[in-house]
Amino acid sequence: MSRSGPATHRDAWFLLLPALIPVLVLSVGPLLYGAALAFTDAQSGVRHSTTFTGLDNFRALRLDSLFWQSFRIGLVWAVCVTVLQLLLSLGLALLLNRNLRFRWLARTLALVPWAMPEVVIGIMWRLVYNPDAGVLNNALRDLRLTDGTTDWLSSMSLALPAVIVVGVWAGMPQTTVVLLAGLQNVPAELHEAAGLDGAGPWRGFTTVTWPALRPVALSVMALNFIWNFNSFGLVYVLTGGGPGGKTQLPMLFAYAEAFRYGQFGYAAAMGLAMVAVVAVLLAVFLRNRLTREDG
């Protein structure tokens, strides 16, 4: 179909239009509007009239230590979850790529978290972490590792790590599937050649597997980081941002600012601050993807 000309272009427009209109009205439009709101004092009440305030929101935001604390927590959470996700998923993908028994079971189980509603994952882990009736404390008590009374999600020092474990669990399926697909694209002859040259498993991995997998791994890491940094539902259900704001991800913070205190303009400014972080990662991802498309 290499025909091109005015007729073909009109056809393309007609085919694209039904998708383009809702995207413009409910995605592009709101995003631009949202970015513009960051420069106003918009509030949730109808009575209040919105005025343009320039950089006032950002000046206030710069001094808002609570927001920056939340921002730091968001970065720690996103980096930890993303890195652990990649390492664990890579291990699992390598195992699933082998001819092991019970592989089907792991394959099936690895997909389950993907199918589950975020809210259910949160609830499920609350049951696991439950200080009295939870299975984690019970198991630790049985193994005589702790006295089994740890209140994981209410502890100032343990809440964030506990929540990070859940984040890793929830995001493993997609990462594993993508990495497994990448592994299956590594030509088998390369492995054989490396084997003949006497390379052990580790040498084989570093010289053959990883170079072939690297672009896929980088892309999936960039996407995971963005998703994790913007994540909301999981932590909302697990801790609601507590204890004492120790798990207050920036999305939770901005949500409260917008829909509990009604400060739409200020919350939008927070959103823009988050975009700055995400934009860098997105650039990495897109460059990676586009160079692969052209190559």
Binding site: L31, A268, M274
Partner: peptide, 15 residues
Amino acid sequence: LVSQAFPLVLIIIPL
């Protein structure tokens, strides 16, 4: 692709 990357606060308020 890009729209997936924006924090939902930025979309939900105008929406």
